[in-house]
């Protein structure tokens, strides 16, 4: 069968990608991230349209700065807001915060969710997900009923481990999920690099941890094993900017058509988008 014909699965069904990003460019302040990179944003939406993706959830994490100040986080979130306003109803925002600045983090999540209509919180590797520094953040997200998407990978190679020494994996996600069963977590990009088999086994018994399938790794049978351990209703479609590999995982996986549609739609997470639209 022609792969374009197979793409009907995307063209004819609701598709939400829960893990995408926007870029910043140099602006008046003379630092990267002053303004939304509208060219990248528009090009991304052309790709989104080409592949039949209806909505994307974006964030602007600050990966290289382990101290990511509250001011930087606010600026990043303002860029995300600009993207949501550029494509209303198509782009939704997630707030990036640094849990190390506890008071500022609480205020910023409040601002993003209550004023900017963001649908969740995105974290990077400033802290492990089960670090006590995250507790106040998790409690804030429970209060506002928004999910927490954490950049995750069980990294095996020494160089990437050295670069991301506090990169969370499935075990960190499981630890925090058991401490806070009322919170909703997304383990970021099971195809983002790292041992994905480790990742999905670790969270299998934690029903409040979901996983997005994004990332460049499209090892067969990543999706089949994920569905087997978690069920399709705990998987969310995402690409993290790696379109071909992420779409291929859905097209080629030996799972039922119904399970594919469940992952693409992200049924369990629709309420977050619907609430933001009101």
């Amino acid at each position: 069968m022609d792969v374009k014909k197979k793409m009907d699965l995307f063209y004819k069904n609701p598709v939400v990608s829960w893990h995408e990003h926007v870029n910043g460019i140099m602006g008046d302040r003379g630092t990267e991230g002053d303004r939304l990179d509208t060219q990248h944003c528009d090009e991304q939406m052309k790709i989104v349209d080409m592949f039949g993706i209806d909505k994307i959830v974006v964030s602007k994490p600050i990966p290289a700065d382990k101290h990511a100040s509250p001011e930087k986080c606010m600026r990043a979130n303002d860029l995300v807001y600009e993207a949501t306003q550029r494509y209303p109803g198509r782009i939704y925002g997630m707030a990036f915060v640094n849990p190390g600045y506890c008071d500022a983090m609480r205020k910023e999540i409040d601002r993003c969710v209550k004023e900017l209509d963001f649908v969740g919180v995105k974290l990077y590797h400033q802290y492990f997900m089960d670090d006590p520094a995250q507790y106040a953040l998790v409690e804030k997200c429970i209060e506002l009923d928004v999910p927490i998407l954490m950049h995750c990978a069980h990294l095996m190679d020494p160089i990437t481990r050295m670069r991301q020494p506090r990169c969370s994996d499935g075990v960190h996600m499981a630890n925090i999920a058991r401490r806070y069963p009322g919170a909703t977590f997304i383990m970021g990009h099971i195809g983002g690099g790292g041992d994905w088999q480790w990742a999905i086994k670790a969270i299998a018994d934690c029903p409040n941890v979901y996983a997005d399938i994004g990332g460049s790794i499209h090892d067969r049978p990543l999706i089949e094993e994920s569905v087997s351990y978690l069920g399709a209703d705990r998987l969310l479609f995402a690409t993290d900017g790696m379109w071909a590999s992420s779409i291929s995982k859905i097209l080629d996986a030996d799972i039922s058509e119904a399970d594919k549609k469940t992952i693409l739609k992200g049924e369990a997470f629709m309420r977050f988008l619907e609430r933001a639209g009101k």
Partner: peptide, 14 residues
């Protein structure tokens, strides 16, 4: 069989 084949077809076709 390491990877899902569709990824390469998508690149080629799109």
């Amino acid at each position: 069989p390491f990877c899902y084949m569709a990824a390469e077809l998508i690149k080629m076709e799109f």
